[in-house]
Design a protein around this nucleic acid. Sequence first.
DNA 1: ATGAAAGCGCTAACAC
DNA 2: GTGTTAGCGCTTTCAT
Lengths: 353, 353
Amino acid sequence: MGRRRQSVTIKHVAADAGVSLQTVSRVINKEPNVRPAMKERVQASIDKLGYVPSIAAQRMSGSRSYLILAINDRDRTIADWRARDGRDWVDQMLLGGMLTAAERGYRMIFELIDTHSDHVERELGAAIAALQPDGVIVTPPHSENPQITGLLAENGIPFARIGSKEDGPGIAMTMGDELLAGKATDHLIELGHMRIGFIAGPDEYSLAGWRTDGWREAMGNAELDCEDLLEQGDFGFESGLAAAQALLDRENPPTAIIASSDQMALAALDVAKERGLHVPRDLSIVSFDNTPIVRFATPSLTAVDQPIARTAARAVELLIDFNKHGAPQAPVVVEGELIVRASTARAPTRSRT
Amino acid sequence: MGRRRQSVTIKHVAADAGVSLQTVSRVINKEPNVRPAMKERVQASIDKLGYVPSIAAQRMSGSRSYLILAINDRDRTIADWRARDGRDWVDQMLLGGMLTAAERGYRMIFELIDTHSDHVERELGAAIAALQPDGVIVTPPHSENPQITGLLAENGIPFARIGSKEDGPGIAMTMGDELLAGKATDHLIELGHMRIGFIAGPDEYSLAGWRTDGWREAMGNAELDCEDLLEQGDFGFESGLAAAQALLDRENPPTAIIASSDQMALAALDVAKERGLHVPRDLSIVSFDNTPIVRFATPSLTAVDQPIARTAARAVELLIDFNKHGAPQAPVVVEGELIVRASTARAPTRSRT
DNA sequence: ATGAAAGCGCTAACAC
DNA sequence: GTGTTAGCGCTTTCAT
């Protein structure tokens, strides 16, 4: 193995084209002040020799690293991965971001950081120092962790905060949670439901709150009461079970339930079945996230799709263009959509007391 | 943004510890010939300053890049990603490889390469030149593409060929397909099945052949006939439909079917249902791959699990240790297992003619 | 519009 | 054992 050096470097190209290194560098970086003829000659040599610049060398001399770093919460990501229940957040984020990055000559690196650890700064700091990424994408709950956003800001690294709309450094991005929760609620209202229960997510996630807000607002617009119709979970299956039980144990139970995560919706479905309630005849269910499994549930779940891939792609673009355009003024919204499947139907005509 | 230089470099550490750069370098790289006292002093400075070496600079000076490149087939990966049907190959490979790499101070980068393109060399060559990875993991069908393995070998880059057991450069790795197909077959034989159909995968994949071999051998060992019991698909759902139809149209149809992919098994399940055959009472089904959806099918499918994460992890280790230990002599087998679920049962007592 | 020189952060090779 | 020197491939100055 030994020293594996670059086989064809900028020097070879320069020699082949009979120009200086600088000129080649200028052509590579599409800089102005190169005569078209010269440019062509150099490009010909590049193609002929199959030259590709080394990103290590580029980074070394103070230019870009052409690396975008995407970080996710360590524990959650590993738990999802082990569970193997088809959650495809990582896939969607990776592919969405990667393909867009590739189009622009960038690469995306995926990394896990522990939110709760006291070593956040160490871990993230190490990744930054080692990789020197040109941009970082952070997802919940990292995107609202001031320790993380602060470190990034300090280091002057452009970053996108997915699932965060606060002011401050970094590009704030959301998937329109509030609006989507409203759409889901409206969908049920149109089907004649008046008692629409909502299973909220945990407070640590702002987006959980936005979803609840969207439901509340849509209910208000339709002059429907939210009283007794809200329960809170932690996005996980178990918590969904408890929340659904509580909702259906009410004196005047809901005829429809919106859960702020797929797992909680699946739990609600189980609870309904257990109680002999037919979905969607007796109870309609809408879920949030739209991970693959909800399509394979029986009945398949009407769900709010989170456009993770599109969001990651957009984040990559914004990050790459950051130097030119700077950060957008307002939070960037990459809007998801409501996908109607078989778990929602007209409200039952009379109450099942 | 401007020139974002490393905030704390080896120089700072050297100055702080009052030693030469080289000594610091030696400590970082755990080289011998550093007195314990010295080592401690330097390490203290490193910790104090929060120093982390820049991989770009390390790579520049001819040492390792600490990057492992994992490449997959472009079209297939994108198709899977778009389909969103819960296939988690990318997830499993990425996380499995990444976590192991991280333990050793390495990073894994995921990349897609087009197999069928004439530009394989260009694409892969570019990735190699830009990234200078210390190792590459290739998966089927790349792992059996001589253009790819040849290029890697030429460049002297250690690589692992997953799903390939031919001799030649690179580390050959399999998940024990033949043996696993045998296990699946034995499982059915133990349940009293004598007519066990097999839906093979496409010839382009050697592992498809190994699976067929394993079935054939197990059948032979039990002195069962394979005649009329083999159909071929392309791993996809549609092809599974056709194959299952053909198998069940036989004069003396099988009482069990093993499909060499989940999608084909799911297709067989659909065909069975359509014909009013109860699974597993009338027909047992075993699938290969064990992607998340098969657990959620009704009934949940007995499946051969492919340990992709473990394989990727092992590949990373072998690659990192390649310089020390070289390539293993024989193909490395990271064996999967048969996961028995609800789609297999005792053979029906009398034939359904 | 092009070229020459300096240096990025680090390690290999060689001194001592 | 430890320090010194040179140089990796590239992009910055700054000349011309």
